[in-house]
Structure formats: structure tokens, C-alpha cells
Write a protein that binds this DNA or RNA. Structure first.
Lengths: 220, 220
DNA sequence: TGTACATCAGTGAACGCGCGTTCACTGATGTAC
DNA sequence: TGTACATCAGTGAACGCGCGTTCACTGATGTAC
């Protein structure tokens, strides 16, 4: 799931670099352009022509790779979900070595992604991309949620069978809380509010209180 | 805090209606146009000229009332926060007659606003309006949060002094959770996910579990 | 190894369009007397 | 009550601009023989 420029990329992956008549990697360059431009001005803040300009090609060139701007953004969203899934799965690491610690890592990984990949996050959650705008987009989005849900299942299994809450509900609660914190406070963005504590701590406290409410003491 | 068309409005408040040379209520009509258009196509989905067309005036007319599109949206956001504050305060009703029930009403009012005033909600939270884009915008936004915070203070006061959590933190948690649910599931929008239960119930369950985690039993 | 050819990614010029913004203007309204 | 005038909200024509999209084209690359 590479999204940074690799060693073997030909020249021309970024603005201003000289290149031959054929770009050689324009599709990737357009995705990178979209990421740069979204990060700068939001998902609505750039045009197809902007992306072409950023990649150093003529305004007609992107049509060889994407039908239109929406298809480009949907592609970015799909890649975003794939990276997101990977990041979450890595943080969760199947709950090893200790479920509660792993669950905390999972939440932090979520916030971390929103903070450090704001362009992907924006394309995934804020650009209004319909989930059927691109093959595999829905599947990629579901895969990300599946990590959360799998974690919730293991957490819930710590509880006695009677009164055990549905894992799906727990997953939705944690997702909502985390997404809410990420949206309201997670980015350095001028429209957001200031916080008296880092978002990671706000989230950690919330999850601890929530899990205590479910009857988990948090010390195992 | 009127935002619907009142009895005394002159003709011309909406598209297609005949009117005299002077519109008479163009500023309000432009705000309504923005709301309609945001609801239809999102906060980035309309232009200043669109708003003028919707209100039935020439494209130059809006300049008598707003410097540019951003000022129009910021105005919508401020009005949104004012309505939001009013709706939340009314639902909370100072915790009467019973704190827990009132707190539940507060959460529902939040979701209700996001659902039934998606255009305002969008302008307030998703349009990227800087809080200093309009006089009173920041104050209006803080007033809304103050309702939540005041409620959290009363809830926290139910607990014994030792181990009482900061009310600010509780307010932030509830705000994040509610905003998260509203963003992910709260609107009928195609980009959003389906839910196995109504968002109101999802929120209610989350808040109950959370408050239980704080040591509140929920039966008083 | 060299040559001919097919493929295909990117060019650049062109188009119609709608937007943002300005301007001198005009017509409705309100008010002083 | 009527009239003259000031005010001001909205007009409509105009402008430059950048966008999305198309098109016949061109030049680089790969491959069959």
C-alpha cells in the first residue's frame, strides 16, 4: 500500500521536475496532487485542472486515467481506507499482548491517522464520496470497520456472558467517539476548537470510562 | 430567531415569485437560498450567483448585503449556532424535572438538529468557516457549548466530591460522541453508513454506559 | 541485432460556459417642508 | 396633503478568467520478425 514516492519512480512525480514526453507515472502523481491539494484547501478546494498543473502535465492528460474529478477523489478515498485498515490492524495486532493496551493503541492509531493523513481522512469521511463511486470502495471501508469490530468482539468476550453487550454496538460507540474527537479537535485546522488536553488523552479517558461502564475494570 | 418565512414578508422571498423592483428582504432570502442549496449539494456545492438566482435577483444584488460567499456562509453558521443553542437549552430546560431525563433530551435535541437542519449543521461544522469570519460567530459557538457544559456540571455534581471528574471533560466527551454519531449516521446522506439501530438509541446507550462508568446509576 | 510498426500517454489549441466582480444606471421608498 | 429631493436597493451589461471537455496530433515505448 505505497503512497509515498518510491525509489524506482521516474522523474516527474512532483511539480517543477523535468520529465520526458511521457510522464510514466501520471496516475500516481495525480493522486499525490489530490492529496497535496486537499491538505491545503479541503476536498472541495481544487479542480481537475489544478491536479494536472500540480503534476506538470496539460489539462487534458488526466482524462487518460480518470473519468473526472469525482473518480480521482473516490480513488483517493479507497486508497485511504486501505491504508487506514492497515494502520488500525497493525496497532491492534490482534490484541497482543494485552487486550486493553491494544485497544488503547487502536484508538490512538485512529487519531494519528486523522492527524497525519488529513487529506486521506477528508476524502474518506468528508468529501461526500458515495460508497459505490469506485469498485472496492465499500469493501475497503468495511474492512476498516471490521478491524474495530473484531477488537470490540475480543473486548466484549472478557465479560460474563449474561449482560454482555453486542460487540457491534461497542464498535459503533468507539468509532463514533473517536471520529467525533478527530473531527472536532483532531486537526490543526483554524475552524476547530482548542482543547485543554491532547485529543489522545481525551479519547483514552472516554474509552476507559465507557469500558468501566460496561463492567470492565481495565486492569487486565 | 426566525428562519422561516413569516407572514409579513413581502413577495419575492423564494424562487419564481413576482416582486417589485426592490426585493425588500433580500438578505433573508439569500440566507434561505444558501440553506436550500447547502441542503441540496453541500456547503461547497453552490455559488454566489446561484444564491442570487434562487432569490430571483441579478447576480450583482447580493453584494449589497454580503461582501462575498464566505461572508454569507459565515452568517448562516452564526444563525445556526444561535438556533442550536436555543434548541439545546430548551431541551435541557435546566435539568428539570429530572437530570438524567433532561440529559437524554439534550442528546436527542442535538441529533435532531443535525438531522432536521442539515444545512445549518453543515455550515457550522463542515464548511470550514473560521470562527472569526463573522462578529459573534465565536460567541455563538461558545454559547452552544456552554449549554452542554452547564448540563455536564449538574450531572457531575450528582457524584461524591472525591473522584468527581472535571465537568469540562464530561462535556467534551458527550459532545464528541454526539457529533460523531451525527456525522457518521445522523443524516440520510448516501455517503453515510447504515445502522442496525436508530442513532438516537445508539447515543442513548452510549451515554448510559458512559455515565455508569462515572459511577452514576442512572435511576435518579 | 536491427527495423518496421502498433500502441498509447501526453500535447496544445480550441470551444462554450458560468463565475466573480465592477459600473453607471434606475426606480422605489421615505421624509422634510 | 402634496411636492421635491435624498437615499438606497436592485439592474443589466460588461469584463477577464479559469474550468471542463473534445480533438486531431505527436512522440516515446515496446514488440514481432
Amino acid at each position: 500500500m505505497r503512497w509515498t514516492k518510491g525509489d524506482k519512480d521516474p522523474p516527474g512525480g512532483g511539480p517543477g521536475e523535468p520529465r520526458s514526453y511521457h510522464h510514466g507515472n501520471l496516475k500516481e502523481a495525480l493522486v499525490r496532487a489530490a492529496l497535496e491539494l486537499i491538505a491545503e484547501k479541503g476536498p472541495a478546494g481544487f479542480t481537475f485542472a489544478d491536479a494536472a498543473r500540480w503534476a506538470g502535465v496539460s489539462p487534458a492528460a488526466p482524462y487518460r486515467h480518470f473519468r473526472d474529478r469525482d473518480e480521482l477523489i473516490a480513488n483517493v478515498a479507497r486508497r485511504g481506507f486501505e491504508l487506514f485498515t492497515e494502520a488500525l490492524a497493525k496497532a491492534w495486532d490482534e490484541g497482543k499482548p494485552e487486550l486493553m493496551k491494544a485497544f488503547d493503541r487502536l484508538g490512538r492509531a485512529y487519531l494519528d491517522f486523522a492527524k497525519h493523513q488529513p487529506a486521506y481522512y477528508s476524502a474518506m469521511f468528508e468529501a461526500g464520496v458515495p460508497l459505490d463511486a469506485e469498485p472496492q470502495l465499500r469493501a475497503a471501508s468495511e474492512a476498516a470497520f471490521a478491524v474495530l469490530r473484531g477488537a470490540a468482539e475480543k473486548i466484549v468476550a472478557l465479560m460474563p456472558v449474561q449482560g454482555r453487550p453486542p460487540a457491534l454496538m461497542v464498535a459503533l460507540h468507539v468509532w463514533s467517539m473517536t471520529h467525533g474527537i478527530a473531527s472536532l479537535f483532531g486537526r490543526g485546522d483554524a475552524a476547530r476548537r482548542a482543547l485543554p488536553m491532547p485529543p489522545e488523552e481525551l479519547l483514552e479517558a472516554a474509552v476507559l470510562i465507557y469500558l468501566r461502564g460496561l463492567g470492565l475494570t481495565g486492569n487486565r
